[in-house]
Design a protein around this nucleic acid. Structure first.
Lengths: 147, 147
DNA sequence: ATACCATTTGCAATTTAGTGTCAACCAGAC
DNA sequence: GTCTGGTTGACACTAAATTGCAAATGGTAT
């Protein structure tokens, strides 16, 4: 992510925090910055590792809690992955995912032609749909080479 | 799931096991039966609880391993959910999901009109797409009533 | 600038989820 | 019935995430 885009997201965080009446701590800024720097769906512990380069004494608990808070504030997203650890995504704009069923890696897909899916009225009667994303599963190029 | 449908799935398991040269153990039958009985995406431990009504001494390790095996045989699916625990789905046919961002519950969506999505060629150049599913996120009827 | 207070943080302990090892066992084939 | 390789159960272990509580801190009012 470019530096100016990153600054914009930090400003957005400041705005959202003020709106929600929650303090903007150095930890929150640092965690968001780390997540936006790592661009491919890191786990909480991967974020922790990077944040510690700036704040060596930050606690693992704090990173977990801050990530939860940022999700609750709508600034980042939690994504659901193969593998046990939760992962986080700094991109809140609509996008889709390629998921390799062999190695578990995930790639982003920007595909405007998929952004106009209509939720079926029948099944979603009492459900208020806010967003959607398409998960494509299959084999990545690396895993196709292996048997 | 109806009894006859369940019997059909157990027969399918027998067939798949024979084809793969793997023995069909009582544990495998019982785990599949339990998963098909629980119809809404149980965790491994929820499956364990139900299986123990039939086989009280079955080991937790075994249930975890059997679920992995059934996924590898293509008889069931592992799904990726909000929350830390992996969940399993007895439905292998293509279907989609409603995910409540507030309570984390998941519902199945059968929507044939969504089954004809074309994977974007650009992004998936080196990726071999086998299947896809659409995840709709939002608020369920219960959570809409709360603030 | 200072003081205040609710929120947040750090630490330690705990719970929950999943994995590794290995002897005993069993389903299926002969 | 006997054989054999895959499977099971028990236990210990690692990893991931959560909780309770005292201390520290950000934001606001003074």
């Amino acid at each position: 992510m470019q530096p100016d885009e990153l600054a914009k997201r930090i400003q957005e965080l400041a705005l959202v925090c003020r709106k929600a009446g929650r303090p903007l701590t150095v930890q929150r800024r640092a965690v968001l910055e780390a997540l936006l720097t790592l661009d491919n769906h890191p786990t909480a512990d991967e974020v922790l590792e990077l944040v510690r380069q700036r704040i060596p004494n930050i606690s693992r608990t704090t990173v977990y809690r801050v990530l939860d808070t940022l999700v609750a504030l709508g600034v980042i997203r939690r994504i659901h992955h193969p593998g046990s650890a939760a992962r986080f995504d700094g991109k809140v704009a609509r996008h889709h995912h390629l998921i390799c069923t062999s190695c578990g890696k995930v790639w982003d897909v920007d595909a405007p032609e998929l952004d106009c899916i209509t939720p079926p009225g029948e099944a979603t009667r009492d459900f208020e749909v806010h967003d959607f994303s398409v998960h494509f599963s299959g084999l990545c190029s690396e895993c196709r080479k292996r048997p």
